[in-house]
Nucleic acid binder design. Structure first.
Length: 968
RNA sequence: GCCCCCGUAGCCCAACCGGCAGAGGCAGCCGACUUAAAAUCGGCCCAGUGCGGGUUCGAUCCCCGUCGGGGGCACCA
């Protein structure tokens, strides 16, 4: 029998923690009341949230087969601490966690193990739930939604139909004064029917004259969710197509790293480009890390410029280019079109090279047609990876055609080159080598003329393009002169001139493309859409939702050789004929339809899960409007740092998660929320009002001589002689240490289960929060966890006798000094919790506790606030101590200690005396000493008198803390 | 190549508005407890802020340059 049976050990922590987790669950401690909906509890809202509400959110976790590692809970603990703190401030806090359970990894795992993805997914969720529960997170357990639940994806499908049944009206006024918003497609049909809007098409037929198929095609060109045949990213190794956001720079799939090919396929798209401006502009209205905003702005890639037509010599055609530098038009000495540009065929003249063709322009071919054909063939065969590898060496051939520069009538040669991208701008450029590095390189390579139209700054290398600002030169014709103007003004002038001449117009261009929304996989939400015999799509009525994913014997996708770009996607649902072929009555009697066999990407479920958290039991609506407004509505004051006059967009109060979703999930969710807002379903215009990007927990990983990772847990460390570097060995072989993301691939998994066992959840929580700032990536060090345990042991010992279990706090009042320390600690900890500075909060609490440890017995008047302040970080031990201190109720809603401002300042402070900025003396003075008195007092100090024997130049007084004397 | 962030003790990190470089933890060392060890407890040691300039009475903090680390973008016209 141990002599200290009541010591705070891992075993004791385990008992205490599990007991409190049970009690929280039984009492529904963290269930947040809703104002409306099926759980309407307005009274609960009123008494639980006298100080308002708080919606705290974690990124939607994917239940992986490997279970959690110690990196996963970092954000969950942080939000939990924040949420618990705010509950103690008297706010109604909603914090919960659900599961994003559709998607590729689950399906691949299922295929590997021969089990149904539903089975493996559900098993994984069970494991993850157990691991998370053991962490002691204060989640509202009723709100743990799962995307694979038909009661959930019914609403994912419903939202899809809202988007499908909408179009973007550029001219519609928004409440915020801007123009453009989503409207029901029925409004558009009404406009066509009434003749208020011209029906697209050249034959002048009216809406009623069109066939159903023709109408369907026109509507598809407006719908925010539509099918179209377009070049898409096809990954044969995955058996599915992917969105642009899911393809890496190297032209491979983000998941699985398979090669991706461009292929023309009919696919579902989301018209996210309609929202490009608002998605870019509204970043000013949210509180996000600047780097994430920058990444989104970058991805949207808005650039202001002009479109200019260059008439092709000897043809009625004109090549339209996009340029951000219309001010440099006079320096456009040639043009380049992308190899895939549809105009190329029409450009190339029959017969021989024209007069003036330089030998290097021909690519060695006899005729322009041969040269262009050969070049196009060569580029189409090269993958993006190969183009990348070739660096920036410019290639291309002359098309044999010339086009006329509209500002000076010069005929300039037109080239085909792959440095111009078909997918950006108009797929054609005017080349201005004097002011563009890429054009400069091309001009040098192909011996083309270079005209500078901006005078380079002093010291500019004359052998390079000049892209900076400066006065225009060589930029005049009979009607207009830009000479002498700066870039900005020159742009304005020339655009006005072009518009006047009808040669071009100012415009805005975006890098953002529409979002490819279908996948040829089984494990996803089915599209609530059917096609009739003409191929026209029809929405299923709401009454037919959810359209359940059929249980099929063969759910594995057809995958191909990763390099086989001739393959075609084959969705698994396409094999379920009895499901695909249906007879339905959609309003004009029973007819035969074919279901959509693609499924949605797993971003679909995560685009709106936070809305379902608000009202998960509602089967009348995806969320009750009153609940949405309560938790998400725009607030009276905009976020800090927003431009003056900003109207708050509303949204989740705090969202914490890794930065890896900066342009995927975060952009998609913003888009959906904006559409739903436009359609009147949401008060909020943004999903995430405040987003905080957490750092990663990194762990040591070890490689052997061949560079292969070895199991980190089996590596031994030996520290040789003093001062020597530690040596790491694995099975006798010396290995090299590095730090990286925790996971299977680096073989450095550390499971939270091990931490619970060895230390308990509170110690683990404290360790992760105490490591350093939340936004930093930090190395995991299992050996260091013990420090957090020691702290909790010392706290415990200040309250409980380790031998008898008796309460040992003193009922005597604390000393003035201790009381002041307590109040300073309260003040600091409150500030730290508010700003997510958990590491410094822990340091302050440790300091306060260390002061108690030195006493014979810790006074209750200090212990109780200490326990309350510790509660958000280490809730189990805090609950246990609180209970032992004689409080029967959970402390979850106990008011957080308040600092007395009187006690934050000491009666006397130490004033630093500097001479010429160097500390030379210090003196204790009353805290409220006046500047004059302090000055006199310091000047009378012996050391100072000595130093200023030769006179005084200045005396800087910062009462009461500092005086700096500068002798003459 | 361009843009952003970060360099403080052996390691992770503090330092309010430009005002004494150190709060907390790990590791190390010494001591207490122990037959011993582990655990625990008490104590100690350790940097002048990557480097070079500048502004200032005074710089970890502001400015310029430079080196190192991390991240983003990368023919986007």
């Amino acid at each position: 029998m141990s002599e200290t049976p009541h010591r705070y050990t891992a075993e004791l922590a385990d008992r205490v923690e599990v007991a409190w987790q049970d009690r929280w669950e039984e009492e529904g401690t963290f269930r947040a009341p809703n104002p409306a909906g099926p759980w309407a509890d307005p009274e609960g809202v009123a008494c639980r949230g006298p100080n308002g509400k708080l919606l705290v959110l974690d990124m939607f976790p994917y239940p992986s087969g490997a279970g959690l590692h110690v990196g996963h809970p970092l954000g969950y603990i942080a939000t939990d601490v924040f949420a618990r703190y705010h509950r103690m401030l008297g706010e109604n806090v909603l914090h919960c966690l659900g599961y994003d359970a559709f998607g590729l990894p689950a399906e691949q795992y299922a295929v590997q193990t021969g089990q149904h993805p539903r089975k493996t997914t559900e098993d994984n969720i069970v494991i993850m739930k157990r691991q998370l529960r053991r962490l002691g997170l204060g989640h509202d357990d009723r709100r743990a939604v799962e995307t694979i639940d038909p009661a959930y994806y019914r609403w994912t499908q419903w939202i899809f139909l809202q988007i499908y049944d909408s179009w973007y009206d550029e001219t519609a006024a928004r409440p915020d004064g801007g123009l453009g918003k989503a409207r029901p497609i029925a409004d558009l049909v009404a406009q066509f029917e009434a003749g208020e809007r011209p029906v697209p098409g050249e034959d002048g037929r009216g809406w009623i004259d069109l066939s159903a198929a023709e109408r369907g095609e026109i509507l598809d060109s407006y719908r925010l969710a539509y099918t179209t045949e377009a070049p898409v990213n096809w990954a044969p190794g995955l058996g599915t197509v992917l969105s642009n956001e899911e393809v890496t720079n190297e032209g491979r799939s983000e998941r699985g790293n398979f090669p991706v090919f461009k292929k023309n396929l009919r696919q579902w798209m989301m018209r996210i480009t309609a929202y490009a401006d608002r998605l870019a502009d509204d970043l000013d209205r949210v509180d996000w890390p600047e780097k994430v905003k920058a990444m989104q702005r970058n991805w949207i890639g808005r650039s202001q410029g002009a479109r200019v037509g260059f008439p092709v010599v000897g043809s009625g055609e004109s090549i339209e280019v996009f340029t951000t530098r219309p001010d440099t038009l006079f320096g456009a000495t040639f043009m380049v079109v992308a190899p895939e540009h549809p105009l190329v065929d029409g450009l190339v003249p029959q017969g021989d090279w024209p007069e003036g063709t330089k030998p290097e322009w021909t690519g060695g071919a006899e005729t322009p047609a041969a040269a262009v054909a050969a070049y196009r063939r060569a580029t189409s065969r090269r993958s993006d990876v190969e183009r990348q590898m070739e660096g920036k060496d410019k290639t291309g051939v002359f098309t044999g055609a010339y086009a006329t520069n509209p500002v000076n009538g010069q005929a300039v040669p037109v080239f085909v080159a792959d440095y111009v991208l078909a997918s950006y701008g108009t797929g054609a450029i005017m080349a201005v080598p004097g002011q563009d590095e890429r054009d400069w390189d091309f001009a040098k390579r192909f011996d083309l003329p270079i005209i500078r139209t901006v005078r380079p700054a002093e010291g500019h290398d004359p052998d390079t393009a000049y892209t900076g600002d400066g006065p225009a030169v060589n930029s005049a014709n009979d009607e207009i002169s830009l000479d002498g103007l700066g870039v900005a003004e020159a742009k304005e002038r020339i655009v006005a001139w072009l518009e006047d001449k009808g040669a071009g117009h100012g415009t805005i261009n975006y890098k953002l493309r529409d979002w490819l929304f279908s996948r040829q996989r089984y494990w996803g939400e089915p599209f609530p859409v059917v096609f009739d015999e003409d191929g026209v799509s029809h929405a299923l009525p709401e009454s037919m939702l959810p359209l359940e994913l059929p249980d099929v014997p063969d759910y594995s996708p057809r995958t191909f050789e990763p390099e086989d770009d001739s393959s075609e996607p084959e969705p698994p649902l396409g094999r379920v004929t009895e499901w695909v072929e249906v007879d339905l009555d959609l309003g004009d009697g029973i007819r035969h339809y074919r279901r959509e066999t693609n499924t949605m990407p797993n971003w679909a479920g995560s685009c709106w899960y936070f809305l379902r958290y608000l009202d998960p039991a509602n089967d009348e609506a995806f969320v009750d409007p009153a609940n949405e407004a309560y938790w998400m509505a725009p607030q009276a004051n905009p976020v800090e740092g927003a431009p003056v006059g900003t109207v708050d967009p509303g949204g989740v109060d705090l969202y914490i998660g890794g930065v890896e979703h900066a342009v995927l999930h975060l952009l998609y969710a913003r888009f959906w929320v904006k559409v739903l807002h436009d359609l009147g379903h949401l008060t909020s215009e943004e999903p995430f009002r405040r987003y905080f990007a957490q750092g990663y927990i990194q762990a040591p990983a070890y490689t052997d001589g061949r560079g292969t990772y070895v199991e980190a847990s089996e590596v031994e460390e030996t520290v040789p002689a003093i001062g020597g570097e530690p040596v790491f060995t694995y099975r006798g072989e010396v290995v090299t240490r590095e730090f990286g993301k925790i996971g299977k691939s680096l073989k450095n998994m550390v499971s939270p289960d091990d931490m619970y066992r060895a230390y308990g959840a509170d110690t683990f929580r404290l360790y992760e929060m105490g490591l350093g700032p939340l936004e930093h990536s930090k190395p995991w060090d299992t050996r260091a966890v013990v420090g957090s345990q020691r702290f909790l042991q010392r706290v415990w010992r200040n309250v409980v006798d380790e031998e008898t279990g008796a309460l040992v706090v003193s009922e005597e009042a604390p000393s003035d000094e201790l009381n002041r320390l307590l109040h300073k600690t309260i003040d600091a900890v409150r500030r730290d919790f508010a700003t997510l500075g958990f590491n410094t909060a822990i340091a302050r609490l440790t300091e306060l506790n260390n002061a108690l440890t030195k006493l014979e017995a810790a006074p209750r008047a200090v212990v109780e606030p200490l326990v309350l302040m510790l509660a958000p970080l280490a809730p189990h031990i805090a609950e246990e101590l609180w209970s032992r201190l004689g409080h029967p109720d959970s402390l979850a809603y106990e008011p957080f200690p308040v600092a007395d401002p009187e006690l934050l300042v000491d009666a006397t402070v130490t004033c630093v005396v500097q001479i010429k900025g160097k500390v030379r003396d210090r003196v204790d003075v009353p805290a409220d000493i006046t500047e004059g008195a302090l000055r006199e007092l310091v000047l009378a100090l012996p050391k100072v008198e000595q130093a200023i024997a030769g006179g005084v130049r200045t005396v800087v007084v910062r009462a009461p803390k500092l005086v700096n004397v500068v002798p003459a």
